[in-house]
């Protein structure tokens, strides 16, 4: 089977400092992988490279493929990058929704590559297309918010709308850059649950960068750990014991260990929450 994500010898420097240092990794379709590391370790930079939002160093052999398609090579974007991005959903820490647009329009943006340009520029979507957007919103529990301006939503709601956009996009790979770092515990749990559901039911490959290792262990079978731009661990999440983390990070380990595990505080309630509405409908649409 061909990997969903293949990164080879990725080098990225900002001026003299090296943000990513020969990162090489492969992620198979359907995996749910956590990307952990202290702040400044290169998590965002790595994820942004995967979507072609940042270019690797020109004089390097850096190469990135997603879904078997080239994203960038030696610091040059693939010619068909927009086509490649269509299958990559990106979820940002700051949500990156357009605040003045209604939630549904933000979600419909996931469909821009599928409708003719004159329709996308005039925001002319057919009823069947709108119903795909509404279905995606329903799956993240946001259907009743469709007409509201995105800026009037809470952080957790905005993040769920952003995930709905990746559903409309029918992304095969979802990259989430610290999606819960700006959220309260309850919203964090919902967002992680939704990502996990997408992974399970839609067979999306999910890579989620996290600040806290306990969340990674809870949701992701595999973890990749970065330290100063280098991959220092890549394996089963349960091997990330406090001892292991101290070994990997030294004193920095406290930053990833000592944060209160706000998601596990909700563990009891989690079992009482109804499962997400089913997903097959959106797949068929």
């Amino acid at each position: 089977m061909q990997p969903a994500i293949r990164v080879t010898e990725l080098l990225k420097s900002f001026g003299p400092s090296r943000a990513l240092d020969r990162v090489t990794l492969e992620i198979m379709p359907g995996e749910m992988v956590a990307l952990i590391g202290a702040s400044g370790s290169g998590k965002s930079t790595l994820l942004r490279h995967l979507a072609g939002l940042v270019l690797a160093d020109r004089d390097s052999r850096s190469e990135i493929e997603v879904n078997g398609q080239l994203v960038q090579k030696s610091g040059r974007l693939a010619a068909n990058i927009r086509e490649v991005r269509e299958s990559i959903g990106f979820v940002f820490q700051q949500f990156n929704l357009v605040g003045r647009l209604p939630v549904i329009t933000n979600v419909m943006a996931g469909m821009l590559t599928r409708v003719p340009l004159w329709r996308s520029l005039t925001r002319w979507f057919h009823a069947s297309e709108y119903s795909q957007g509404l279905e995606a919103l329903a799956r993240v529990g946001m259907a009743e918010r469709a007409a509201q301006r995105a800026s009037t939503l809470s952080g957790g709601q905005q993040q769920r709308a952003a995930i709905a956009r990746t559903l409309v996009q029918r992304a095969k790979v979802v990259l989430a850059d610290e999606p819960i770092a700006s959220l309260d515990p309850e919203s964090s749990r919902r967002v992680m649950d939704i990502l996990s559901t997408i992974n399970r039911e839609d067979h999306c490959t999910v890579v989620v960068s996290l600040h806290q290792v306990n969340v990674a262990i809870k949701y992701c079978p595999r973890t990749i750990a970065l330290r100063r731009g280098q991959v220092v661990f890549d394996g089963p999440s349960e091997r990330l014991t406090p001892a292991m983390l101290r070994e990997l990070y030294g004193a920095e380990a406290d930053e990833i260990l000592d944060l209160p595990d706000h998601i596990s505080l909700l563990q009891d309630r989690r079992d009482n929450v109804a499962p997400l509405p089913s997903i097959q409908a959106a797949q068929a649409g």
Partner: peptide, 28 residues
């Protein structure tokens, strides 16, 4: 620039980035 990047990440082209990401922000 963040909302514009959000639009770009979906695979949108420049004109769509402007119509969805830029114009709503500058409209008022």
């Amino acid at each position: 620039p963040q909302p514009v990047e959000g639009i770009r990440a979906t695979g949108a082209q420049k004109l769509e980035e402007i119509v969805y990401g830029v114009i709503p922000q500058v409209m008022p």
